[in-house]
Simulated assay, not measured.
Amino acid sequence: MRKTYFISDLHLSDDYPQITQAFFDFLAMHMNADVDALYILGDFFEVWIGDDEQSPLAISVANKLKAVAQAGINIFFTHGNRDFLLSKRYAKQAGFTLLPEQHIVDLYGTPTLVLHGDEMCTQDIAYQKFRKKSRGWWWPRLILSLPLSVRRNIARNGRAKSKANQMGKAAEILDVTPSAVLEMFERYNVAHMIHGHTHRPDVHIHEHNNKRLTRTVLGDWYSQSSYLVVNETGEQELVKDKPA
């Protein structure tokens, strides 16, 4: 039976080699001849400072993904708030296709919106301001023009500041805003959505304008190997309790 897989928020880094190994194990176990596609919905890496940083981690991950792509499985990548600087060079190196921030997938006959999800956390005003700047045309160009050593320091300081800010914020601010979720459903006129970002894996049912809307949230990989698999009959399984 044909299948499609979705993952998000692995936060791959040298600090968590067990997550990288869990991802490689996931590929070896699940990416077989029955699989049509693998969707990576953002925050795949803990931080990405440019395709020109060819670290051993980046190279090994690219090689694993390239092998999957060469086996005939389509791989698609949506940027997250950690890896929005990932660009065409690495996409080619890893054998995957870059998607826009929001993208409709024909998932075995069901139009499905896939996205990272951070754009729906509208109560986090400070982050949304940064998001708007970082996705603009000038800021990425400015950052990428800096030496790698400078970019590493900027990324390190930025992560420390982000963690400190999150500790002081209420849980509902860090989660998606219900009104933003419904607006996203209406904008794309779909009844099914898949996203990550919040690290709260679950399947949510929304009743809106006499419609039943399904929103599947992917989990992170800090303490689990969370993924969603959808087969050709439309049945889906959200795995969220497998130890990493």
Rank of each mutant, 00 (worst) to 15 (best):
207 E>P: 00
165 N>W: 07
149 S>C: 03
78 T>H: 01
122 T>Y: 05
53 E>N: 10
65 L>D: 11
40 I>R: 03
21 Q>V: 05
137 W>D: 15
48 W>L: 03
138 W>A: 13
185 F>T: 09
99 L>C: 14
114 V>N: 14
84 F>E: 07
136 G>K: 01
200 R>C: 02
38 L>M: 11
76 F>E: 01
65 L>E: 08
87 S>L: 01
185 F>W: 03
140 P>F: 00
160 A>I: 08
213 L>N: 08
67 A>L: 09
215 R>Y: 09
156 R>W: 08
198 T>S: 12
203 V>L: 01
204 H>V: 10
205 I>D: 05
217 V>Q: 02
242 K>V: 13
10 L>V: 11
126 A>K: 15
137 W>Q: 13
38 L>N: 13
216 T>P: 02
118 D>G: 09
173 I>W: 08
126 A>I: 12
63 N>R: 14
53 E>I: 01
171 A>D: 15
111 P>V: 04
51 D>I: 02
189 N>G: 03
35 V>M: 06
7 I>H: 03
145 S>F: 05
151 R>S: 10
151 R>D: 13
237 E>V: 04
212 R>M: 05
122 T>S: 12
203 V>Y: 02
196 G>F: 05
105 V>Q: 15
164 A>K: 15
42 G>L: 06
182 L>M: 05
117 G>E: 11
124 D>A: 08
162 S>E: 04
67 A>M: 06
104 I>Y: 13
97 T>G: 03
238 L>V: 10
60 S>I: 01
209 N>W: 00
2 R>L: 06
178 P>D: 09
242 K>D: 13
234 G>K: 04
228 L>F: 05
162 S>P: 02
19 I>K: 11
81 N>Q: 11
190 V>M: 01
82 R>A: 04
111 P>F: 02
113 L>M: 11
65 L>Q: 07
130 F>Q: 04
128 Q>A: 07
39 Y>V: 06
3 K>Q: 14
241 D>Y: 00
151 R>Y: 11
61 V>N: 04
9 D>S: 08
72 G>A: 04
138 W>Q: 12
6 F>P: 07
240 K>T: 12
242 K>P: 00
138 W>K: 12
221 W>S: 11
182 L>H: 02
1 M>L: 11
14 D>F: 00
82 R>P: 10
67 A>N: 13
101 E>K: 01
97 T>R: 07
94 A>K: 07
158 G>Y: 09
119 E>S: 14
50 G>H: 05
104 I>F: 12
